[in-house]
């Protein structure tokens, strides 16, 4: 269990984190979202025991991060922002160093090192110094050190930043695999990641929590939630389509994209418009390339509540 209680951090006049309270339980993957400078990293640093809170408290598995710091740190695997490490060390030496600090010994040490090296595909670079690695490999080394002691709680600050799409997919698969038995908090500003791995999302802006919901719940706040979008085969039908859709009583607004030859109908609150719109399209003789129901756009919700 991760628990924060009125967690606050001031840097002089600046309130980096302002009265943040939340709890995360087993099986949850919490996505921590927010614009740059919103306080994500500072919150994570306080959870990891790197930055002391100005007021309020936080605990990891019941251990207060300020008064019982060593126990809290023992229960935690932490990937700092930018995945810092010791550049002059080889990957193998570095992971062994962390394993030693984590108190791993004997057969378990060997087994855990083999496990993370295999899982994060580091076998090919074990003898290389970290300075010579690509950004993607460095991130994976950072992830490997965070999970080497198999902690019950993981806090990962931008775990997929700088990775290519294949590597992102691998890291997300890894997080999903671990999600069943661990408590995981990741920060990101990549919204697709929230859908891909998170069971819950907290959006933070100017140091305060502005939303705390499931990804689907957040998407439902979008004005595009349950909107119907159709792409026309012939751009000449755009005006006909717009006028026809706008005449439906349950449609609140219509947006037209000429570039894509797309018409999007936004429903009035609570209205379901997929059936009426598709019938209308057939009746009016519109030639459709594509017709679909939107779940809601996270990026639009994100912009609306953090602006």
């Amino acid at each position: 269990m991760i628990k924060t209680d009125h967690l606050t951090k001031h840097y002089g006049q600046l309130k980096a984190v302002d009265d943040v309270s939340f709890q995360v339980g087993p099986g949850e993957v919490l996505g921590f979202l927010g614009p740059n400078g919103a306080g994500k990293t500072t919150t994570m640093r306080m959870l990891a025991g790197f930055v002391a809170p100005t007021s309020g408290s936080a605990s990891i598995c019941g251990h207060d991060v300020a008064t019982d710091a060593l126990a809290a740190k023992t229960a935690l695997g932490y990937l700092p922002e930018g995945a810092p490490s010791y550049g002059e060390m080889t990957v193998r030496r570095f992971l062994e160093f962390i394993a030693d600090l984590r108190g791993l010994e004997g057969a378990r040490r060997t087994a855990r090192l083999d496990h993370v090296i295999g899982n994060l595909h580091l076998a090919g670079v074990l003898g290389q110094t970290i300075d010579t690695l690509s950004k993607g490999f460095r991130r994976r080394v950072g992830l490997a050190q965070a999970i080497v002691h198999d902690p019950p709680v993981l806090i990962l600050d931008e775990p997929t930043d700088g990775l290519d799409p294949n590597q992102k997919h691998e890291v997300r698969t890894l997080i999903n695999d671990m999600a069943r038995e661990k408590i995981i908090v990741i920060s990101t500003h990549i919204l697709e990641e929230v859908d891909a791995v998170c069971t819950r999302a907290i959006i933070i802006a100017r140091g305060r929590i502005v939303a705390d919901d499931t990804p689907a719940g957040l998407a439902a706040r979008s004005r595009y939630h349950n909107a119907v979008s159709m792409q026309l085969a012939e751009a000449s039908q755009l005006e006909t389509a717009r006028a026809a859709v706008a005449s439906l009583p349950s449609v609140a607004a219509v947006e037209v994209s000429e570039r894509e030859a797309r018409v999007t109908a936004l429903p009035k609150p609570g209205a379901l418009i997929f059936a009426p719109v598709s019938e209308l399209a057939a009746r009016t003789g519109l030639k459709l390339k594509e017709l679909h129901l939107e779940a809601g756009r996270l990026d639009e919700v994100f912009r609306t509540i953090t602006a």
Binding site: G49, F50, E81, P84, Y86, L101
Partner: peptide
Amino acid sequence: KSGSIELLMTQPVK
């Protein structure tokens, strides 16, 4: 400078 202090200080080390 390198940020490795954050790594070191978040290990269970006094």
